[in-house]
């Protein structure tokens, strides 16, 4: 029916699937992301590891990688060393443990951490894009509509902000205030809106003199109503495409900042902070770094292809 090949529609579908994974993280995660059942026994288990959880009578849980019943009770292998425990020293029957993506240096389940990290990173990126869109539309529309002196002043401010090296700006903001998830949203949002402001301004300048604006004015619409009800909706596809691309950039940045240890602090789990923990354990466990990176790339790929598709749909090439 349409000219869009099927493989290009995989982008939006994959994006929706990944976003759903993030939304459903608390339900899908096999166990809490911060659960350290047995640091020594469960650390650095590779992907697809099967293990068993034994709870001793004093309540101490241990995770063992191999378990079978022997003559004197349970014989097991824990952290590469074999041992045994009498059956009556366990407070309950052994529980199976399966780590599809492996465990990290503290024996935490990476699948659970990844799901919650995805949720956190996507939420932060999405909220900061909303903030950037709001700021960009406000400033850009104001500059485009007020014109002359206000336009020059606002755009000079935008240019100055754009010319400050972005990373330095993030670094400064990240150290200015105590780190938190809210700060990340504000810092990322407040530093990425300038490009949007320029686009909205250019579009406003073009739309201001259009017949559409004239018609709205002739029908008696006030200036604010003209902008909000008649001109801004014209920009919706443009804003959607740019917002999507901004989302991809912001996701990358948020992970980079978290990787450098400048993101939201410890209880919060971001894809970047998982990568940071994997960086410290690079010689023991390649998988800790691998998963968050693959997840980020697949997100970027799907977001960008969705944006391209959106662009094609909203602005189809002329048939002539």
């Amino acid at each position: 029916m349409s000219a869009t090949p099927v493989w290009k529609r995989a982008g939006p579908a994959w994006l929706a699937a990944v976003l759903l994974l993030g939304v459903l993280a608390p339900i899908l995660a096999p166990r809490p992301p911060d659960l350290q059942e047995d640091v020594a026994g469960a650390r650095f288990l590779p992907p697809l590891s099967r293990a068993h959880l034994l709870v001793l009578q004093d309540g101490r849980p241990i995770v063992v990688t191999s378990l079978h019943a022997g003559s004197g009770g349970w014989e097991f292998v824990r952290a590469g060393e074999s041992g045994q425990v009498a059956a009556d020293r366990l407070s309950r029957a052994p529980e199976p443990r399966f780590y599809p993506l492996g465990t990290d240096s503290l024996g935490r389940d990476l699948l659970a951490r990844l799901l919650f990290g995805l949720r956190h990173s996507v939420l932060i990126a999405a909220l900061s894009v909303v903030l950037a869109l709001a700021l960009g539309v406000m400033v850009g529309a104001a500059a485009g509509l007020l014109g002359s002196r206000w336009d020059a002043l606002l755009m000079a401010g935008v240019d100055a902000l754009r010319s400050i090296p972005r990373l330095l700006l993030y670094l400064l903001c990240a150290t200015l205030f105590p780190p938190s998830s809210l700060l990340m949203v504000i810092v990322l949002g407040a530093t990425t809106w300038t490009g949007l402001a320029r686009i909205v301004r250019a579009e406003m300048l073009a739309l201001r003199g259009s017949d559409l604006a004239a018609a709205a004015r002739a029908a008696g619409a006030r200036p604010l109503r003209t902008v909000l009800r008649h001109l801004l909706p014209q920009m919706a596809p443009l804003l959607a495409v740019n917002g999507a691309l901004r989302f991809a950039d912001t996701l990358l940045l948020e992970s980079a900042l978290s990787l450098l240890g400048l993101g939201a602090p410890a209880p919060a789990i971001s894809l970047g902070s998982i990568m940071a923990s994997g960086r410290e354990a690079l010689s023991d466990a390649w998988w800790i770094v691998a998963w968050p990176g693959l997840l980020i790339s697949s997100l970027l790929l799907s977001v960008r292809s969705t944006a391209t598709l959106l662009f094609r749909v909203s602005d189809p090439p002329s048939i002539a």
Binding site: L252, S255, A256, L259, M275, G278, R279, L282, S283, W286, V289, A290, P292, G293, I296, S297, S298, L300, L301, R304, S305
Partner: peptide
């Protein structure tokens, strides 16, 4: 190219260090 373009540069760095330096 689309795949490579979507890999974060810092992640490529970490993966290559893990492969070519550590391993």
């Amino acid at each position: 190219a689309s795949l490579l373009y979507s890999f974060p540069s810092y992640w490529i760095g970490l993966v290559m260090v893990s492969l070519f330096s550590v391993r």
